[in-house]
Design a protein around this nucleic acid. Structure first.
Length: 646
RNA sequence: GCCAAUGUAGCUCAGUUGGUAGAGCAGCGCAUUCGUAAUGCGCAGGUCUGGGGUUCGAGUCCCCACAUUGGCUCCA
């Protein structure tokens, strides 16, 4: 048989030999490194016999799919170890994931941290035993019978749900067998440096209606050093956690009697958000937006029109008895759309009025589930750079592009351009109850959006079931220090709510028509944006956003008055400056300013006064030497105006 | 909402098998007037998250609530 390798070279081999044998023929070292293989692009076991002519790629730990096989096998070692230590545990599923793997178990008693150490030891034993993995297939009936005998009800359910024509394969390693599509590495001895990271509850098949299982997360690396580095990186990332830094830097706090998801923005945090809001509102004004200020609450009738009463009631804070049809029931707003629609409805609109762009720095209230709250990233009251555009169908494309351009401008200004991903969030056609409107309507709107995205050349992924109830979204996603992804910015196309609200415009032909509505944010939610800025810059916010930009540090009491004058001079130029006149050593004052991540410190001693200069220290580069105050101010003002970040 | 962990001074933490709370930093006072990441001494500071219970006695044990954290589900 002829095997073509990725470099294009063709080699002849005997029928039925495996990818491992082929690797061996190239070098013993390659055989050792080979974890799995791709045969004509299909992932296979490296130990599987090959017949006929094919393209072959050997997968090592350097390949994403190689790592996948490695960690998937590690999850089988985990399952085997758990079965050894807790024979009554039932197996659910155990896939490889980004940076690791997990396995779900049904156990009578939850795992503890101590259990994890014991399981890790057992995994090491299984690795040391170097058990070969073998694959075998069974017909459906026998496969079910086999798993019944092993008393694995979750596996039986999985097999039952496999498609008619599915190949049902199993992998055996020693005394352990698991239902699995593979591929796997040749033997358990390959799997080293396994670290069990955490225990979590997880619903069977991801549905809260099902039983909650015990999930063990782990990771595995080929080399010890890689594992150590990965763990060190996680520890390093945790130090950037906004929830820790944001509290230490006195940007925000929480109070238990106020309640979950209701953070207090302290003066420094409020200052940063104020700066962001001014920046956003000014930029939006420049781009033709008109600012509205609409109420924080409305009667339920408004939400009945919008559909929120039917589709989002659980997420709203409602004042009054929602079941009493006679009563006047109010609800805090969970979004701004219907309010800005009322602004549109203020008078009749002509096609000449469109596009109409409304923006609002809008505070919203959402009754998120109690387990969802997370620092400033997921809260129950937040303020968002909201906006709604009403446009004619022929304007949708341009307006959408304008929204994306604004979003990208914000992302770039904040320095997030390499941290975001674009997600095209579509409806779930198998669960239409969650949405309003017809299938045709959804299909055509989604096609419109997809065409625009393709036309712009955005690199996006499509995800089903993530749309708003009224239309598809472009979500700009970002990950926090724990790797959890959230939406930073969203742009949505809505062909439905205008009709519900009776929003029309008179077209050039005299006909009344419904405008297309674009729902969008430009910088997203301010609290969340602040959180991500803290994490991105480890608390050292870019100078233009720093709550305090310059700390003036008199060396002795003799220079305290002069230092305060310098502070006043800085403030004349709009610089946020503070003076630290305390009778402390200069090293101590510097240490404090440094820990507060203040961009610049000016050390003022007798020498500086005498020479008419300031001694500049930057939080990043340390002592910068002396310069005239006006020169420092000039550079600083330029840096702030440029909104530079590094 | 579900599975778990955690909750002691403003912050970071210690507190043995239940016997009535301790350190460092921060704060305040005094001394020191100092040259680029912590000057010294002293003082003050706690209903041990809240509420029940067990006990002669609870920060320690049990129950409930609240909050914080990691996941799951959810996320207009």
């Amino acid at each position: 048989m002829n095997i073509t390798l990725p470099d294009g070279s063709v080699h002849q081999y005997d029928e039925g030999i495996s990818a491992l044998d082929i690797a061996q023929s190239i070098s013993p070292r390659l055989k050792k490194a080979t974890l799995a293989a791709e045969l004509d692009g299909e992932r296979i076991d490296a130990f599987a016999p090959i017949h006929g002519d094919h393209q072959l790629k050997l997968l090592t730990f350097a390949d994403e799919n190689g790592r996948w096989a490695y960690r998937h096998t590690a999850s089988h070692l985990l399952a085997q170890a758990v079965k050894h230590l807790y024979p009554a545990a039932k197996l659910a599923i155990g896939p490889a994931i980004e940076n690791g793997f997990y396995y779900d178990f049904d156990t009578t008693v939850p795992f503890t941290q101590d259990d994890l150490s014991a399981i890790e030891k057992e995994i090491e034993k299984i690795s040391a035993a170097d058990l070969p993995l073998e694959r075998f297939e069974l017909p459906r009936i026998e496969a079910i019978e086999y798993m019944r005998k092993l008393d694995e009800p979750y596996k039986v359910e999985l097999i039952n749900d496999l498609p008619e024509d599915a190949v049902i394969s199993f992998y055996r390693q020693g005394d352990f067998v698991d239902l699995c599509a593979g591929p796997h590495v040749p033997s358990t001895g390959k799997i080293k440096n396994v670290k069990l990271m955490s225990i979590a509850g997880a619903y069977w098949r991801g549905s809260e209606k099902n039983k909650m299982l015990q999930r063990i997360y782990g990771t595995a690396f080929e080399k010890r050093a890689e594992l150590d580095e990965y763990i060190a990186r996680i520890e390093e990332a945790k130090k950037r956690d906004h929830n820790k830094l944001g509290r230490e830097l006195e940007l925000f706090t929480t109070v238990d009697v106020i309640g979950q998801g209701l953070p207090i923005l302290l003066p420094k945090g409020a200052r940063v958000i104020q700066l962001l809001q001014r920046f956003v509102e000014d930029e939006e004004q420049r781009r033709g937006y008109m600012l509205t200020k609409t109420p924080f609450m409305a009667k339920r009738e408004l939400y009945k029109i919008s559909g929120h009463w039917d589709h989002y009631r659980d997420g709203m804070f409602i004042m009054g008895d929602p079941d009493d049809e006679q009563a006047e029931v109010f609800a805090l707003r969970p979004m701004t759309c219907p309010f800005q629609f009322m602004a549109y409805l203020n008078r009749s609109r002509s096609y000449r009025d469109l596009p109409l762009r409304y923006n609002e720095t809008s505070t919203l209230f959402r009754n998120e589930s109690s387990g969802e709250m997370h620092g400033l990233i997921r809260v129950r009251q937040f303020t968002i750079s909201e906006g709604h555009l009403a446009c004619r169908p022929d304007q949708v494309e341009n307006e959408f592009k304008g929204c994306l351009d604004l979003a990208k401008f914000m992302i770039t200004t904040l320095g997030f351009e390499n941290d975001v991903t674009y997600q095209f969030s579509k409806w779930d056609e198998n669960n239409t109850d969650k949405y309003i409107g017809s299938k045709e309507n959804w299909e055509s709107t989604q096609n419109t959006m997809r065409n625009i995205l393709n036309d712009i050349g955005v690199d996006f992924v499509e995800v089903d079931g993530e749309a708003a109830f009224y239309g598809p979204k472009l979500d700009i996603q970002i990950k926090n220090v724990h790797g959890k992804e959230d939406t930073l910015i969203t742009i949505q196309i809505d062909f439905q709510l205008a009709e519900r609200f009776g929003m029309v415009y008179t077209d050039s032909d005299g006909e009344k028509k419904y405008p297309v509505v674009i729902h969008r944010t430009s910088i997203g939610c301010y609290e969340r944006t602040l959180a991500l800025l803290i994490e991105k810059y480890a608390g050292a916010l870019p100078t233009w956003l720093a709550p305090v930009q310059v700390k003036v540090l008199p060396l002795t009491d003799r220079t305290a008055d002069a230092s305060d004058k310098i502070r006043l001079e800085l403030e004349k130029y709009g610089v946020r400056a503070e003076c630290d006149p305390r009778n402390e050593k200069i090293g101590f004052k510097i240490r404090e300013a440094q820990m507060q991540k203040i961009p610049y410190m000016l050390v003022i001693g007798d020498k500086e006064i005498e020479n008419g200069v300031v001694a500049v220290r930057s939080r990043k580069d340390g002592d910068l030497g002396t310069m005239p105050l006006d020169a420092f101010i000039k550079d600083l003002v330029a840096e702030i105006a440029a909104k530079s970040h590094d």
